[in-house]
Design a protein around this nucleic acid. Sequence first.
DNA 1: AGGCAAATACTG
DNA 2: CAGTAT
DNA 3: GCCT
Length: 789
Amino acid sequence: MRSSGPLTQVHMIASDTELPHSDFFSSDSSLLSFRLSIPSTLPKDNSNMSGDLDEFFRQQDLIFSMPDETVDEYFERISKWEEKLASRSARSRRPGSSTHTVLDLPDLSTSHEQAKDAKLKHKTTHGDGTGDAQTDHQPTKRVRIDTTVHDRSGVIPSITPALGNTTGTAGSGVLQVKSTTQDRSRPQEDPRSVPLASLAEGEDSIILWSENSRIGKPLNKATHGSSSVQRSIKPAAQDRGVTGTNNTEKDKPSKEQAIRPRDTVLKTSSAPATKSSVRNVATLPTSNLAKESPATKQTRHKNSATAPAAGPSRQPAATASRVKKANNNRPSKYSMDENSTDGSDGERKRAAPDFLLYPPNKRQENETRPTPLFGGNGGSSSLNAFKSVRVTSAQDDPLAQFYEKARADRDAVWLGEDGQESPLGASEKSQDKKGKSSKRGFTCDEKGPPSKCVNQDIVDKLQELQAIHEARPTKDDKWRVYAYRKAIAAIRRYSKRITSRDEAFKISGVGSKTADKIEEILETGDLRRIQYENTPDVKATAIFRGIYGVGQQIAWQWYAAGCRTLEDVKARKGDIKVSAVQEIGIKYYADINDRMPRVEVQGIFDRIKPIALKLDPVLFIEVMGSFRRGKADCGDIDILITRPTDDGRTHRGILRQLLRRLHQEGILTEDLSVPDDPDDLEAVYRGLCRRDQNSRHRRIDFLVVPWKSRGVALLYYTGDDIFNRAMRYKANTMGYSLNQRGLYAGVVRDTHDRTKKTNTGNIIASETEEEIFRILGIPWQEPHERIRS
DNA sequence: AGGCAAATACTG
DNA sequence: CAGTAT
DNA sequence: GCCT
């Protein structure tokens, strides 16, 4: 507040939308805001969040104001802690170290003045001690802020950089705030732990955190790019925004407001805490900030769902009872976490994943129904046929031991591995239309063979959940998606109707959490969690991600900028930036996302091949991907090109000529990505093509590889994805390394960073697919048998 | 506690 | 060079 | 999220 010296205002604001981090850090603002990331369950549209959300937060006890002294104090504490940690061995700085500060803050509902007078107490402890500062009577609210090192490098993630300190590297973390009312009438059940995200932006700066995530990234960038970041902190006095000195923002003049609707809110709120959505208010001496840097971060543990950064929130839905159940059945580490949920009054140990729970009863069933986003991956699968075979084949396999280790991936690896044809079909690819019947697995591979699977209802629900997590940008979500994918595949492959949690739990790939969900589906026919988590951002970002060139990050940035539909993007709402490639992606949105019938691929290839052979008669040119796997429809066209070298010649230069010819023919219509050196023996081209003037535009890739690599290239580009991953994973466990260039032996990986190879090893196979299968001990499988997802 | 596949092109 | 997308 |  006012008064002395340079101050930085701290706004505690609640919002259901995340902001783009990239924006923040570059803005130079004198304000420091924390943003509570909450699931926007109430207002359906974020448009009117101000009203309802406020109320919601109030009820949830998440609204509070923070007097300067408090903020000051808080940062000081954190800073000290940080220093302490920094001076210690890296060991103690490992992720997991944590501290927390308990503050008693004046309730938002009270006037600002009161807030000032309010007393606050706090204490900081180490480890996970529990804080229980008891307070007195004032209308205050007790808030606990956890700060945990979550970054793997051991560096303490800090928001400091945004404030001008260069100490921390960007890290990842989540600022978690838990608040409890004085009268613990509403005990632990309350969720209340909210992932806090903060951002800095134009006027209101924010600092955003996310575990493992990108939020930290911008930080780095800013830091690197120019020292300016620091400068940003200016005395609050000057108010807002101001000098845009910083990078990005500077370009945009009006900046702040442009960005998101929400800004308005923020701004206005700068006033003392009123009921406006903005909540808080407090100022702190900049000096402190600048120097110390509170870093903060925090954490949750992996389980919790939230995606901080970006996301707003998510809350898990499991109910306590459910959780318990899970525990009972399978006492495992998971249980611990889960139990914490009900911990006694105190706080549980850190990381309880479930403290994010929302009281189930809060949710209404009437929520909008989650709409399945498009795109899912659909695969499907009827790999039932393979099922029986898999285990048995394992015994003959010399690598039987490997199975144990790679049990998790067993299905993926072994499916259909039986050398013999298991199921029918190996016969020709009766692709095309036909389909679905029990023939090959691939027939089912389609997007949605709705029926067919006896556990289809379960699969559907889990897929919805998977889609939701796909929308979130954090690593945790990424792995969750991976897990869901596998679990779903396993369930599909399970031929009997699942009738109990136990039964589900027995399926490899289905763990306690998923088993719980299945139980809920069986009992209620629904999964509440889907409702809770299916926030509006999921739908919007899914749409954006459908644009070629747009992934989670971009999608989130756009969403944060206010875009919700494709139209918004086209209109550049929020001043978003759209790259040339993305522009093409938007232009041909439907064409690119729709799958094309197999015959169309054939038709296009029939035009291309002659042209290629005319350039060089001995070229090897074939269509890979799903086409090679025999699918009835394909998402894109992958064409592999190479050339025998017996005659001492190569295919060098062919790609360049071919591309030119195809453009001339009107077959290629847009370039999405052109190799740096089209004449290299190894190159990849991505673009759009069409069979003829009356056809739709389709994605096409040209993959040029050295003759020697044709085997692995064939393997790699044929997929499918899951099959490839499983194969590579197996190669790894066997001490090999498999990539699109070859199968390597003697690869030595860095002890700490397994992704780094100290020694690339020696290539032991690459010319034929057969040798790769043989060496890895995997029975040969025709392309159409390599379907796993 | 830590892994979960691996490589490359484009952007800024 | 980091980050993102494929 | 699941698994070792």
